Simulated scan of single mutants.
Amino acid sequence: MPTPETTRCLTLAQFLRGADWRLSLPHGRPYALFLWITRGQGRVTLLGRRHGFGAWSAILIPPGTLAMMDFGAQALGYAVMIPADAVDILPAEPHLLRVRETLSQAELTAVIDAMQREQSTHRPFGEEALLAHAGLLSVWLRRALSNEAPAPPPRAAERLAAAYCALIERDFRNGDSMADHAAALGVTPTHLSRTCRQTAGLTAADILTGRVLHEARVRLEDGDAPVRDVAEGLGFSSAAYFTRFIQKHTGAAPTALRRRAHQ
């Protein structure tokens, strides 16, 4: 999904259209993503902590938040994308809310329905109207959060996993290893990996590998930079090493992935 220049609202089916890896691999987005799940279930991992969700779940993923998503086949709902220059209207932390009150469900659905109508009519000042609706969405979210019981303080394992994921999202292009990140966090690689498996269901190395692989595929399949430039931009020592990395994790060479995406 290209980075939106304006606020956009899609059905979940429209949002999910395309390669599964774009959601299932660890990744951060340059824009805020708000998901409103009205049917079905799935899992989302936010900053190294895995959560299950079902119908009537609201999920906020701020820009630059490392996340993974897996939606069940029956999942229905909406995805709202808000550009980074407008995200100051939203909370700065990721949230997952299970919305049980019928009135609150109806209020949020009404805001999203209004966004969809605004998009479909193409009236003057539509971008301003969509941003105003995004502001109403933010008000709804902050009200819903104010009604929630205070969350317990994060456990040590959750704090470490979140710190690791934030470090990955900041530095994954540098070519640093998982052990390098563990040293920066003052823990052993074994402890870090055990912690991530506990909170996210993946080892620390798997999370880092997945983030690099996601970015590599985005650059290969959505861009036209030479493979050697993609490899260099992600901290690989050589294009040959990068090619082996891509082949190992996708079963195809970088040029084959690009060619397949453009067919």
Rank of each mutant, 00 (worst) to 15 (best):
T3P: 06
P4G: 08
T11K: 01
T11A: 07
A13R: 14
A13L: 05
Q14H: 12
F15D: 09
F15W: 12
G18V: 05
D20G: 11
W21K: 04
S24W: 07
H27K: 03
P30N: 04
A32P: 00
I37Y: 01
G42K: 08
L47Q: 11
R49S: 12
R49F: 02
R49N: 11
R49D: 06
R49C: 11
R50T: 05
H51W: 13
A55Q: 07
A55C: 08
S57W: 08
I59T: 05
P63W: 10
P63A: 12
P63I: 06
L66D: 02
L66M: 06
M68Y: 03
M69W: 09
Q74E: 12
A79K: 03
A79C: 12
V80M: 06
M81I: 00
A84Q: 12
A84D: 08
A86M: 11
P91V: 02
P91K: 10
E93L: 10
T102I: 10
S104N: 14
S104R: 15
L108P: 01
D113S: 06
A114K: 13
A114R: 15
A114F: 13
R117F: 09
E118Q: 13
Q119T: 05
S120V: 01
S120K: 13
H122K: 15
R123S: 14
F125Y: 14
G126M: 14
E127K: 14
E128G: 11
A129M: 14
A129V: 04
L131G: 00
G135H: 10
L137R: 02
V139I: 15
V139R: 15
L141Y: 07
S146P: 00
N147D: 13
P153L: 11
A161M: 04
A161G: 02
A162T: 03
C165S: 04
E169R: 05
E169M: 13
R170P: 01
D180C: 02
A182C: 04
L185F: 04
T188L: 13
T188P: 03
C196N: 07
C196F: 02
Q198F: 09
T203F: 04
T203M: 03
A204S: 09
R211S: 12
H214S: 09
R217I: 02
R217T: 02
V218M: 14
R219V: 08
R219Q: 15
L220W: 12
L220R: 11
A225Y: 10
V227M: 04
R228F: 10
A231P: 00
G233S: 15
L234N: 04
F236P: 04
F236A: 07
F236S: 08
S238C: 03
F242Y: 11
T243A: 15
I246T: 05
K248M: 12
T250R: 09
G251Y: 10
T255I: 08
T255W: 15
R258W: 13
R260L: 15
Q263R: 15
Q263I: 06
